[in-house]
Amino acid sequence: MKRALLTVEHLTMRFGGLTAVDDVSFTAWDGEITAIIGPNGAGKTTVFNCLTGFYQPTVGRLLLERADGERFLLERLEAYRIGRDAKVARTFQNIRLFPRMTVLENLLVAQHTSLMRASWYSVAGLFGLANYRHAEDAAIEKARHYMELANLVEVADWQAGNLPYGAQRRLEIIRAMCSDPVLLCLDEPAAGLNPRESAELNDLLLLLRAEKGVGILLIEHDMSVVMRISDHIVVLDYGKKISDGTAEQVQNDPRVIAAYLGEEEVA
């Protein structure tokens, strides 16, 4: 039975006179990969920034329903609470790692909230109490597990900024996963990757969906990624939703073809 994880209703975002996102509604289902595609400037990243609290939407309701029944209205939450409480994690179009920290440290920062609690807000940690040591060991094991999935164990102690580009993309994804999200938002994860890295990325995303049951929302230009792994595709153009459905449905939608090929007459 499909369960709605994220319901976006009438999302509108205006910057001064410019309407970047115009009355967009869609649903992302739990345990599925939903892709948002569209030409440049279609408003995809703006949707993400509204979802993750970096922009305050002008109009709209962003409802997140977790499997445990908790519900969050994302438009009312600050960015960090969307990550911490609603458990929506994201990556960025221009990778945002902590470049001078190691791969492992990046993954531990992602587990800040749980480790903070375990260290009794640093008190237990300062005195080196056993409960904190155990929590840290567990956090490192979790990080190791994800590094194995993303093939990054070998470079665990490298500075993140020194990794090759593809590895940085994978690291950013597993860093988001380390915060135990229910919804993972990926902003063009395949941008700048070569075909081999792109294939590795596909495998990683499918693995995450299969093993962790996390819902994935994906912005992507690379159609080889989108068509192969998405369960469901939303197409935006000039801030408006023009199509919504499976890969096959979207591919055959004349409005989508028109938007991408620039045909004037719309069926």
Binding site: Y80, A110, T113, S179
Partner: peptide, 15 residues
């Protein structure tokens, strides 16, 4: 230190 490196990424991780 993460904040020094990239504070927006920090916010997205629930910090």
């Amino acid at each position: 230190e993460a904040l020094r490196e990239d504070d927006i990424a920090c916010a997205s991780l629930g910090i």
